[in-house]
């Protein structure tokens, strides 16, 4: 595990994350939950006001289920830390940010220079997502 990469100004949440099963089966007071790629993020929706960290596991970088999980949580109003953990590569972070991830715990170090350039590269995006970016169609029509 390498350094945590955060795009939040609050302090990192230190409580260890419990699994979704553990959370559902009695640890519903936990404030940090880890979702595996195949877990149903919607199970957490009733509890989002008291969760401070959701960590979503990426077993392989090609497994894109976590992108949908992230958006579902953000669309449900979750504002706490949303962390992508595991096989997370530099070329994915831009899309992950757009889906609502604001923290990254990659297995291998991320090249910061490449990342900075990657996050600044695209001035425009075609679709709205879980971030504040205004889609191109809105720019075209005011």
């Amino acid at each position: 595990m390498t350094d945590l990469l955060r795009f939040r100004t609050d302090a990192a949440h230190e409580e260890p994350a419990v699994s979704l099963d553990a959370f559902v089966e009695g640890q519903a007071n936990a404030s940090a939950v880890r979702l595996e790629a195949g877990d149903d993020a919607r199970v957490l929706i009733p509890y989002l006001d008291r969760i401070m960290l959701v960590e979503i596991g990426f077993p392989k970088f090609r497994d894109g289920r976590g992108y949908s999980s992230a958006r579902i949580l953000r669309e449900a109003g979750y504002t706490g830390e949303l962390r992508a953990a595991g096989d997370v590569l530099v070329d994915q972070i831009d899309f992950m940010r757009r889906c609502g991830f604001d923290a990254f715990a990659p297995d291998a170090p991320i090249d910061e220079a490449v990342l900075t350039r990657s996050l600044e590269r695209y001035d425009y995006h075609y679709q709205p997502a879980a971030d504040a970016i205004v889609p191109v169609w809105k720019l075209r029509h005011g």
């Binding site: 894109g64 949908s68 899309f95 992950m96 757009r98 889906c99 075609y126 679709q127």
Partner: peptide
């Protein structure tokens, strides 16, 4: 346009 670089549906 809408499917180009769709952040949720690229993996």
């Amino acid at each position: 346009q809408a499917t180009t670089f769709h952040p949720e549906f690229s993996y």
